[in-house]
Design a protein around this nucleic acid. Structure first.
Lengths: 150, 150
DNA sequence: CCGAGATGGTTTCAGATGAAACGATATAGC
DNA sequence: GCTATATCGTTTCATCTGAAACCATCTCGG
């Protein structure tokens, strides 16, 4: 008879730990900046580049286009991003940070890194590197089993 | 100016990878056994022991009592678990696997382990051990920042 | 005992998520 | 050009999750 200890089952452990970290991150962003995680992700990606369409943001953040649409609408509403017409394609817009958006980003980014380093305190650089690498490998090897993305 | 690469931000990576693995696990269980993840977790924990109350299941699975309540109701409905009166406390019940439940468990457990080993294929035993240990440490160090559990 | 909390569990409600249908524009084949 | 199809984005709907309110029972101080 096969026995399985749930506590030792890695998909379970991964889910529990990830949920706890996400919850920590979510409550921090919400409390400090009134941002939800999808909104924060869009801001981060837009800040990395020179503006992006929602479709590009969906790819970059691996979020559903519905989630991107709603997060973008909220950010426009708050005056943190702007929709500029896209000369190449009138169905989409180029989303860019407003001044307020950039200022917010400059405030959020250090807090995010600080929180990350608190959660990963006690890890050596080598451990973190190894952890990152393992996450990448897992993501790849799980993809074929994920019916939604197959 | 602080710059942050979302792709390098560990809470983000953790969330993406965990969601992908969960989605893979969820579609597998759903397709093979018609089980949702919370239901499967209850079956696994009950099978590990000699029956448990919902409150104990909530602790063991780290799931909300509402989620436990619904999963338990679904399992009873399907005849996979049974509620036996709890002599010590009439508010709660002892949940145990029925014969059908145990049979199901005996089928699910090997599939779960198989899926796990596919997702973690290419990892050495030492790497897996290290990964597990890191998850444990992260869970602990994230807890204080998680407003919901503080 | 008895009344005031505490606790196990269910129900109700609100928020987050994604699948499917949709409108508008773009692109390709004729 | 013109129609068929694909794509961008929004809206709608169904599902999942957890917070809060609730009911029943249990426990504890008097």
């Amino acid at each position: 008879m096969t026995t399985l200890k749930l506590d030792q089952f890695l998909p379970y452990r991964l889910s529990i730990v990830s949920n706890r970290v996400s919850s920590a991150v979510a409550s921090t962003y919400q409390a400090l900046f009134g941002l939800k995680i999808p909104e924060w992700r869009l801001v981060a990606i837009i800040a990395e580049g020179e503006g992006a369409t929602q479709q590009a943001l969906g790819v970059a953040t691996r979020m559903d286009k519905v989630t991107v649409s709603r997060a973008a609408a909220a950010l426009v509403e708050r005056g943190l991003i702007e929709r500029r017409p896209n000369a190449n394609d009138q169905r989409s817009h180029m989303l860019t940070l407003t001044e307020a958006g950039r200022t917010l980003y400059e405030n959020v980014a250090p807090k995010a890194l600080e929180l990350e380093s608190q959660v990963f305190a006690g890890f050596t650089a080598a451990e973190i590197k190894a952890f990152r690498a393992m996450l990448d490998r897992i993501e790849t090897s799980a993809a074929p089993f994920d019916a939604d993305r197959a």
